[in-house]
Design a protein around this nucleic acid. Structure first.
Lengths: 181, 181
DNA sequence: AATATATGAATGAACG
DNA sequence: CGTTCATTCATATATT
C-alpha cells in the first residue's frame, strides 16, 4: 500500500511539497475516475428516461440531481444544514471567478449579481458569497505566507507578489454537465 | 484487468516514469473521486428503487452494475488522505503545554518554536500544532458545556453567550449518538 | 469484518 | 482584513 509512514508529512503547506506518483498509480486513478464518470452518465441517462416515461415515481424527489446538488462524500446530502454549503457547481463557479477576477469582488453590485447567478444552482445569500470570497482570499494569503516563511532563502520561483500567478493550472470540473476528454 | 505486479516493471523497460502533483491537485483528484462515488451510490440506490417497483425498463441492461465489477477496484491507494498522528511523546508535550498555557499559543512565533521542539520527536508541521490546539480548545469547551448542561440552573459560570444566537444548542436529532465527542 | 468512537483537518461565519 | 470560533467531514483506532 502507499500508506505506510506513520506521522505522515505536513500537507498543509503545499507549494514545496510534491507528491510523486508512478505511472501505474496514475493509471489507476485515471481509470477510477473514468469508471465513475461513465457510470454516472449512464445512470443519469437511465433515470432521465425512466422519469420521462413514468412520472409516477415522483415520490423520489431527487430531481435536482443532475443540476449538481451538493456532493459531500457522506451521502448526507438531504439533511438540512444550518450552515450553507456550496454545491459543486456553485463552488466551481466561485472558484473560476476568484481566479479570473484576481480576488474578491470589488463592489456590492457585483456581489448581488454573483449571488443571483449562483442562486440558480442552489440556495445562497449575499453574505455567503461575501464570506466565501473573504475566506478564500485570507486562506490563500496565509498559505503563501507560510510557504514563504518556510524557505526564507527565497529566490524560489513563483514567490513573486504577482497575484495573477494564482492560476495553478488546474481545472476542477465535474464532467457531469460538461463534456470532457 | 489482468494487471498485477508492482509498479514500474510492467511499463516500458524499467524506466521510472514519475508524475509530480502538487498537494492541491492531489486534493482535487481525491474530491472528484469522492464526488463520483457519492453520486454513483445515490443513483444506484435510486435505480434499485425504481426497478424494484417497475421491471419494465429491462430495456436498459445495466444490471451488471451494482454487482460491483470495477468501481472500487484496486484504487483507494491514492484516494485516501493521510493525516498526521502525534506520537505519544508529542502528545504528552502538547498536553502539558495546553494545561500550562491555559489555551492555544498566542503568537506565530510560539507556534514555530513549539513545532521545532516537537519535530525532534517525530514528523510534524506548524499547521498540525495549530490544529491540535484549536481542536483541543474547542473540544474542552464542548465538554464543559455538556457537563454544565446537566446542572441546568444553579451556578452558571457566565459561559452562555447571547441566547438569541443561531440556535447554539440544537440537539434536535442526534439519534446516532455520534456527535458527542 | 463491521461498527463505533476519537480526532486531525477543512471551512462557513463571526469578531475586533 | 486578519484572526478566531463553531461545526462538519474524513480517517485512524478501538471494540464487537
Amino acid at each position: 500500500g502507499a500508506r505506510e509512514g506513520r506521522g505522515g508529512e505536513s500537507m498543509g503547506e503545499g507549494v514545496l511539497y510534491l507528491k510523486v506518483m508512478t505511472d501505474e498509480q496514475m493509471e489507476i486513478l485515471r481509470r477510477q475516475i473514468a469508471a465513475y464518470a461513465t457510470i454516472c452518465e449512464q445512470l443519469v441517462e437511465m433515470h432521465k428516461a425512466v422519469t420521462a416515461r413514468r412520472d409516477s415515481l415522483a415520490g423520489m424527489r431527487l430531481g435536482a440531481f443532475y443540476d449538481g446538488p451538493l456532493i459531500s462524500s457522506s451521502g448526507q446530502t438531504i439533511a438540512a444544514r444550518q450552515r450553507w454549503t456550496p454545491t459543486a457547481l456553485q463552488l466551481q463557479i466561485l472558484e473560476t471567478m476568484f481566479h479570473h477576477g484576481k480576488g474578491p469582488p470589488r463592489s456590492k453590485q457585483k456581489i448581488k449579481q454573483i449571488t443571483k447567478e449562483l442562486s440558480r444552482h442552489g440556495q445562497i445569500s449575499e453574505s455567503n458569497v461575501c464570506n466565501w470570497f473573504q475566506n478564500r482570499k485570507a486562506r490563500l494569503k496565509r498559505k503563501q505566507m507560510a510557504a514563504l516563511a518556510s524557505n526564507t532563502e527565497s529566490e524560489v520561483e513563483a514567490d513573486e507578489e504577482s497575484p495573477n500567478e494564482n492560476e495553478p493550472s488546474h481545472r476542477e470540473s465535474l464532467p457531469l454537465g460538461s463534456d470532457n476528454s
